[in-house]
């Protein structure tokens, strides 16, 4: 690396998807700059950010690519695959491409990105943010999240492995951690999944996880979940901008049927 200024810039917010990337960067010991995106102020929908990620979601990452030009990346799963392909030459948190473990690792990354993330996200929505309380919506997504947690719990316990792809912590584990750590926010009782809970604690002991989880702000979900009153206040604050965002999106695409 020629310049002293880190070439990696992470655009992020304190969310499960955001801390995946900061934890990955910390685990790899890579220098990076952080630019905080204020989603309550819709910074992610400003044009300069849409030029980086047309989907208007965090996290996004820019890096100086091997050709000397900037590469823009979005989608947390793809950013993680990029970071290990480019920088994890010693396979600290990944496996060599083409190996069985490599493909299994990707298997669990997609499981998180297509399953746990979206479903637990919907459980959050119907449990905390929806404009009206729909019991059915709450149950549907909490049940599906529990089912997916059950798959993880059984995988870890039946194989008696410390991490999802065996003995090594990989990006597949890192991808899951932020979501599992905030289970209570979606109304899920983590203690119902003992192997997964033990895995969560094991992950939390890693220095990279500890450092990376507090980016760009303190990772406060664990404290929040202990304090009911604070939790309701936090939900109410978020509810306002979530609903405003939904309304805004619906307006924008009106008439496009």
């Amino acid at each position: 690396m020629a310049s002293e200024e880190p070439s990696i810039v992470l655009y992020t917010t304190q969310t499960p998807n955001g801390i995946k990337i900061s934890i990955t960067l910390e685990e790899l010991g890579l220098p990076y700059k952080v630019q905080k995106i204020d989603i309550s102020k819709n910074t992610q929908k400003e044009q300069w950010f849409l030029d980086i990620n047309p989907n208007g979601r965090i996290p996004a990452l820019t890096d100086t690519f091997t050709d000397g030009k900037t590469i823009n990346l979005f989608e947390s799963g793809s950013i993680m695959q990029y970071l290990v392909a480019q920088y994890d030459k010693d396979y600290k948190i990944s496996f060599p491409p083409g190996t069985r473990e490599f493909y299994e690792m990707n298997n669990w990354i997609f499981f998180l990105n297509a399953g746990v993330g979206p479903m637990q996200g919907q459980a959050n929505h119907f449990t905390r943010y929806a404009p009206e309380h729909i019991e059915y919506g709450v149950n549907r997504y909490q049940n599906e999240t529990r089912r997916l947690y059950g798959v993880l719990d059984k995988h870890l316990s039946s194989k008696n492995i410390p991490y999802l792809v065996g003995d090594k912590c990989t990006i597949a584990d890192i991808a899951h951690w932020g979501w599992i750590a905030s289970a209570g926010w979606a109304g899920i009782e983590i203690n119902d999944f003992p192997a997964l809970k033990a895995w969560e604690d094991r992950m939390a002991e890693r220095p990279g996880v500890e450092k990376g989880r507090h980016v760009p702000d303190r990772h406060g979900i664990k404290d929040l979940l202990k304090d009911k009153e604070k939790m309701e206040k936090h939900a109410a604050e978020n509810r306002a901008w979530v609903q405003a965002g939904m309304k805004d999106d619906a307006e924008k695409h009106k008439g496009k049927k």
């Binding site: 091997t66 947390s76 695959q81 990029y82 990105n113 979206p118």
Partner: peptide, 16 residues
């Protein structure tokens, strides 16, 4: 590399 990762990015967007 750039195209390779951008393909994976759009695949991840499809998936999630």
């Amino acid at each position: 590399l750039k195209e390779t990762h951008l393909c994976n990015q759009w695949l991840a967007f499809q998936i999630s």
